[in-house]
Design a protein around this nucleic acid. Structure first.
Lengths: 139, 139
DNA sequence: GTTCATGCAAATCGTTTGCACAATG
DNA sequence: CATTGTGCAAACGATTTGCATGAAC
């Protein structure tokens, strides 16, 4: 949107309603759901506005995008149950050789009454080679 | 691809090489990486073939797609650390009120030497309303 | 020879972006 | 009034699909 550095963000009806809407629900809406919902108040609303505002809100830490982090589908021939480590810097995904804790599924039943059949864990951090690169580039 | 029910799947050079390639690596390739790699052996290979075969292999349980399960980005105004339950049937995502186990990050360091800063867990199963629907439709 | 798998290209889907105009401070 | 935010439409990138031809069995 071409912003000159340092200029403060302006408020907008649309952005405020998007945040309010997200705060009012415990579902995890898609952009399209928000769009459909807000069209009642702003008949001319566009998807571009929805996406732009979601990006701003996420950048401000007021909301978070949930997902795997990668834009691409990724495939794995290791079909056994295992956890993943994802590097925040280079996006590399590493299979972890960590014992899988199947008792976690039972904890979900105890806490929420939901029957969890399986679970996945993604750890996030900096992989070894990125850590090395970052240390050596320290300014 | 228009398959008449019950007809057996035929083998294909391309599919076998895709599986072999996935088994030979511990990275978690994207479709495009596989495509580029296999083009050496099949100069006329098309992306359509890659995607079709990945779908077949996944359907046969020989590989798995890793990701959040949803095609769409989803947004959440609950920015505190929490785990998710995803219903396999309807895709609903539920925030879990489960204690977050920060010690898991340390276990990754101990086991793999990787510095995990955070982690996410997605439990999968059938949500309450889908479970009800399925029981009542039992044939 | 029948039916499935491939290659190609066009279509689709979610998301992003350029531009002229409206809203904000 | 200077600059951001919006709406619109076109662009984009990943994935999917229709169709004619080639491969499997």
């Amino acid at each position: 949107m071409r912003r000159t550095k340092g200029t403060p963000r302006r408020r907008s009806q649309q952005r405020e309603r998007i945040l309010e809407l997200l705060k009012s629900t415990d579902s995890h809406p898609t952009a399209n759901w928000i769009y459909a919902r807000l069209r009642r108040d702003f008949p001319a609303l566009s998807m571009g506005t929805v996406y732009r505002n979601l990006a701003v809100l996420a950048e401000q830490g007021l909301i978070s995008r949930i997902g795997f982090g990668s834009t691409f589908d990724r495939f794995d021939a290791n079909t056994g149950h295992h956890y993943h480590f994802i590097c925040d810097h280079c996006g590399t995904i590493v299979d972890l050789d960590l014992p899988v804790d199947e008792s976690l599924n039972g904890r979900v039943r105890a806490a929420a009454g939901l029957e969890a059949r399986s679970h996945d864990i993604q750890f996030r951090g900096t992989c070894a080679s990125c850590a090395r690169r970052i240390v050596s580039n320290r300014s």
